[in-house]
Simulated assay, not measured.
Amino acid sequence: MAHTEQMAPARDILRTYGIHIVLAALIGVTAILSPAFLSGNNISNMLLQAAPLGIVVIGQVLVILVRGLDLSVASVMATAAVVATTFSGQDSDAFPVFVVAMLIGLATGLVNGLLITKRNVSPFLVTLATMTLLQGMRFAYTQGAPSGNVPPIYRVLGSQTFYGVPYNLMILVVLATVFSVLLHKTTYGRQVYLTGGNPVMARLVGIHADRITIASYVISGGLAALAGLIYSGFVGIVDNWVGRGFELDSIVAAVMGGVALSGGRGTILGGLFGAAILVVVFNAVLMLGMPIEFQIIIKGIVIIAAAAIYVRRA
């Protein structure tokens, strides 16, 4: 009994700070094996890569908190990126590009939310369907080969820095702060947690659970569209697969960060730490000179680990 009581504080520390410890350990080990890992250029590059994923993770966290998931985010990103090259490619078109991309993202989220809440369709099937639908529409529109230039402002936001700090990271910090405050300091946030934690109780106390769920999917779609515009500026070229893999990466990041797939538990900050771990792992593969295929293998290992962590917590 005494031994168990002595172990309890250690378990509490691991439960609370486990993801921070893992991230610190990954950075430390990689830095020892490859000193260039902590160079200013590499850190800036990792932050540039992490920001679009982090923006998507924020929306994914909101969706998972209400017992859902969103597989359409990567397809929304790619569609937004294609939209970014549809106009003349001048800064004068930056605002129309933003409006059209956001409308696509918000509409996709609205369709997802309505089908899930009003037709009781599985979130997996609904978002898989909208993902496929957007892919088909995108390929039909571009004939499989999108062309055009991204407005310069998106290149600046996606790939440039201000005194070493990436602009897209600034956007991520602002969004993370806004939505964290929204979750923890407002009525909407309390309703999100109650809707995900106990939908029946939420309805009994007068919460419009369907509206909360729909709002979460709409926000997720909008954030995915924004991430697509920023990511298109980062990669510099646009194809039909911009953001490919972000749907799984965002879910894995959220779960590693302590967001429960059963809903009602987790934080945006935790999800962002999970995203940071993924970015560090993928970057470490390159810095250590491993074949790029190892990223896929490691991603599979990370998914298995995330599933194990989730089962353990549950």
Rank of each mutant, 00 (worst) to 15 (best):
residue 254 A to F: 09
residue 235 V to P: 01
residue 221 G to V: 06
residue 248 L to A: 12
residue 227 A to N: 02
residue 175 L to V: 11
residue 247 E to P: 06
residue 211 R to K: 14
residue 182 L to K: 09
residue 175 L to R: 09
residue 246 F to G: 00
residue 232 S to W: 02
residue 262 S to F: 12
residue 227 A to R: 00
residue 229 L to K: 02
residue 242 V to G: 01
residue 180 S to N: 10
residue 189 G to W: 06
residue 184 H to C: 08
residue 219 I to P: 00
residue 209 A to L: 01
residue 194 L to P: 02
residue 192 V to L: 07
residue 186 T to L: 11
residue 264 G to P: 01
residue 198 N to A: 13
residue 188 Y to T: 09
residue 242 V to N: 05
residue 220 S to N: 12
residue 213 T to N: 02
residue 189 G to E: 07
residue 180 S to M: 08
residue 252 V to F: 10
residue 215 A to F: 09
residue 194 L to D: 03
residue 259 V to I: 09
residue 175 L to I: 12
residue 249 D to L: 11
residue 192 V to Q: 00
residue 242 V to P: 01
residue 208 H to R: 15
residue 179 F to I: 09
residue 265 R to I: 12
residue 188 Y to H: 13
residue 185 K to S: 14
residue 186 T to P: 05
residue 212 I to D: 00
residue 262 S to E: 14
residue 266 G to S: 08
residue 232 S to P: 05
residue 221 G to Q: 03
residue 240 N to V: 09
residue 253 A to G: 07
residue 192 V to F: 05
residue 223 L to Q: 07
residue 238 V to M: 10
residue 231 Y to P: 00
residue 262 S to K: 13
residue 241 W to E: 14
residue 234 F to V: 06
residue 203 R to D: 11
residue 203 R to I: 04
residue 237 I to R: 13
residue 211 R to A: 10
residue 264 G to T: 03
residue 215 A to D: 09
residue 243 G to Y: 04
residue 203 R to Q: 13
residue 216 S to H: 05
residue 221 G to M: 07
residue 220 S to A: 15
residue 223 L to G: 04
residue 187 T to G: 14
residue 180 S to L: 08
residue 210 D to E: 14
residue 224 A to D: 01
residue 229 L to R: 02
residue 209 A to R: 01
residue 191 Q to G: 08
residue 182 L to A: 15
residue 244 R to D: 12
residue 202 A to S: 14
residue 250 S to R: 05
residue 252 V to E: 06
residue 205 V to A: 06
residue 251 I to Y: 06
residue 241 W to K: 13
residue 216 S to P: 03
residue 231 Y to T: 08
residue 248 L to M: 15
residue 214 I to D: 02
residue 217 Y to I: 07
residue 257 G to M: 04
residue 210 D to L: 00
residue 192 V to A: 00
residue 251 I to F: 11
residue 182 L to M: 15
residue 176 A to W: 09
residue 254 A to W: 07
residue 202 A to H: 08
residue 260 A to L: 14
residue 200 V to S: 14
residue 213 T to I: 12
residue 198 N to L: 08
residue 243 G to C: 11
residue 195 T to Y: 04
residue 200 V to E: 15
residue 261 L to N: 04
residue 199 P to G: 06
residue 251 I to N: 02
residue 253 A to T: 05
residue 220 S to D: 11
residue 231 Y to M: 15
residue 264 G to N: 04
residue 191 Q to D: 13
residue 261 L to G: 02
residue 203 R to K: 15
residue 225 A to F: 06
residue 263 G to L: 01
residue 240 N to P: 05
residue 246 F to W: 08
residue 249 D to C: 08
residue 264 G to S: 09
residue 220 S to V: 11
residue 198 N to Y: 08
residue 236 G to W: 11
residue 177 T to R: 08
residue 230 I to A: 03
residue 187 T to P: 04
residue 206 G to I: 01
residue 205 V to R: 06
residue 255 V to P: 02
residue 203 R to N: 12
residue 197 G to Q: 07
residue 250 S to V: 07
residue 225 A to K: 01
residue 234 F to L: 15
residue 213 T to M: 09
residue 263 G to M: 03
residue 245 G to L: 12
residue 194 L to A: 15
residue 233 G to M: 02
